[in-house]
Design a protein around this nucleic acid. Structure first.
Lengths: 339, 339
DNA sequence: TTGAAAGCGCTACCAG
DNA sequence: CTGGTAGCGCTTTCAA
């Protein structure tokens, strides 16, 4: 930078101003000269020096459990949103695994911030409210939880509204004449799965409809496991006219089983899921499901985070985005064999 | 750091030495005092300052097309390897999308390096030999291509050996009495897909076996597309006794179709794939496939990159890792109806 | 074994 | 509108 100042016969300051795109405080002629010179010298601003001087790393961290999440459609959608939310800005992504260094996750992540490796964090932990959130929040580190509502006091989160999806789906099927409705459960130890299950039972109760325990089975958010369980389930003499799966993966597993058994969906039994995975578009038959605005979640989370790190002002604590139904071909309205 | 030097009655230098874990050049007593003091002060080294002084960002970039790859099992496996390769080191991951900023990918990535935002790059571009590789290589930027062999001169890559997998699979089926073998093709525009296809034809020719064009169809590395095409395919009166899918996703799609049609795998038709996705373990029936050492690929790539950035010595140009078969339940040996 | 000094490349702050 | 000066927190170099 000194070189180019010298070559142009101006001070480093002027050069700095021009290069920083400061719109004021520099004459046009000087600006042009400097710009030309910079190009000639093939000048590259040094991000390290800049970071150091401004006391900002320029990196925003994404913290998530690599195993399981990194390869999921959910992650890629969320990141697409994060990207969108940071479009046009000069921030960069850093990536951290909350599983490694598990012995001291809180310290690790907090350290990242204190050591100025990142200026803020997005925590993706849809599967549990990890304890590290508490520590980060307590230390006033800019961190936003994406994808899961959290019970932590003062923590900021942006998520989709799981319970609402299930309620909607229950109403949807009931409105279409279904009375006997089955449910495929997610893993017991996951908050979101419990929330979904509760919402189903509540909504059935609200409509005065009984829940037949035979029509409930576990799939653990897993396609092949659900398939295997459904293979048993479908042997029952009396089937429900519809089944709600707590997520798409399980709905897909149910379809796999139905195809193997030669049971027709939706003629014999309707199926709905939650998530709207890419695969739900092209399943056999295409799956009616709740589209979760995961991408939007990421976008909002990122905007909040940037706002927070740039202004220092902590945003509102919680946002829940609601889902919308995508009607495809796995639901039969007014089934003739409905009880 | 000054504070703690003062408090201990030593110089900043001594403190620096202690904190850097320099094994020599400092007395035990001084070391202990400094360490204690640092703990008391809750001292945090500032990574920014360190980076600046050492002229290293501490970040290694992973460049990939977010869309399509970010949510894939392939990506997560590769990253697991990268992580392994960087275990114990002080490097961090940065993440860049080769699709955004597509207008000037080369410049963008090169810029990242020149601006010192990253000290090296892993390029994951299994689907094409992007032009930006050329630019990076020409500028002697430490970049390693993971997952795909490359034709670029001087570029360094670590990849799995696709052709070898297909050759092995062909031999494997032939050795088990199969004579009429079908093939599910990947997308035409992908190098790896063409390579796999060529390998199949070559190997059949080598054994003096004809390839029936009716037994070849396209799946484009896509599960549901393959399912739909296979649904047609399986209507043929004469089927091959085995089918090789150029990847697991397509093998899975083929299984979907077989299940829907009620065609028994492997009794009627055997199926094999390439990749060994998680889903291949639990498909119906479980899939016999080639396990690609994707994780290993990542690990080696990362080790090479670190070596390169730390020593400045460019590693050997190309490594190909070979695959091993995982025998499950989708192949029938010595089918009775083989021609 | 220790310490003093210089400097990494940039920005902030205050003068002119 | 412009330029000087003073750091940012660490490492490197050299001298004691």
């Amino acid at each position: 930078m000194g070189d180019i100042a010298e070559a142009c016969g101006v001070s480093k300051m002027t050069v700095s101003r021009v290069l920083r795109n400061a719109e004021y405080g520099v004459s046009e002629s000087a600006r042009e000269r400097v710009l030309a010179c910079a190009k000639r010298f093939n000048y590259r601003p040094n991000a390290l020096a800049k970071s150091f001087a401004k006391n900002r790393s320029g990196y925003l961290g994404i913290a998530l459990p690599f195993e399981g999440l990194l390869g999921s459609a959910y992650f890629s959608r969320l990141v697409a949103g994060l990207q969108e939310g940071m479009a046009g800005s000069d921030w960069q992504f850093a990536l951290f695994d909350t599983l490694s260094d598990s012995f001291n996750k809180g310290d690790k992540l907090a350290g990242l911030y204190h050591e100025q490796r990142v200026d803020g964090l997005i925590a993706i932990a849809p599967h549990s409210n990890e304890e590290y959130i508490e520590k980060l929040t307590a230390e006033d580190i800019p961190v936003i939880i994406a994808g899961e509502p959290t019970q932590h006091q003062n923590a900021i989160s942006v998520s989709t509204d799981d319970e609402d999806s299930i309620r909607f789906l229950s109403d949807y099927l009931i409105a279409r004449g279904h009375r006997e409705i089955g449910f495929v459960e997610g893993p017991e130890n996951l908050l979101s799965a419990r929330l979904r299950s509760d919402a189903f039972h509540q909504q059935m109760a609200k409509h005065g409809l009984p829940v037949n325990p035979n029509f409930i089975f576990r799939g653990d958010y897993n396609r092949s496991k659900t398939r295997d369980n459904a293979l048993q389930f479908l042997k029952m003499k009396a089937l429900p006219s519809a089944v709600i799966a707590a997520n798409d993966l399980m709905a897909l597993g149910f379809l796999d089983a139905a195809n193997i058994c030669g049971i027709s969906v939706p003629a014999t039994c309707s199926v709905v899921g939650v998530d709207d995975l890419d695969a739900a578009k092209s399943s056999y038959p295409p799956l009616t499901t709740m589209h979760q605005p995961v991408r939007k979640t990421g976008e909002i989370a990122m905007r909040c985070l940037i706002e927070w790190t740039e202004t220092g002002k902590k945003p509102e604590p919680l946002k829940k985005l609601s889902s919308t139904i995508v009607e495809r071909a796995s639901v039969q309205a007014y089934p003739t064999h409905a009880s």
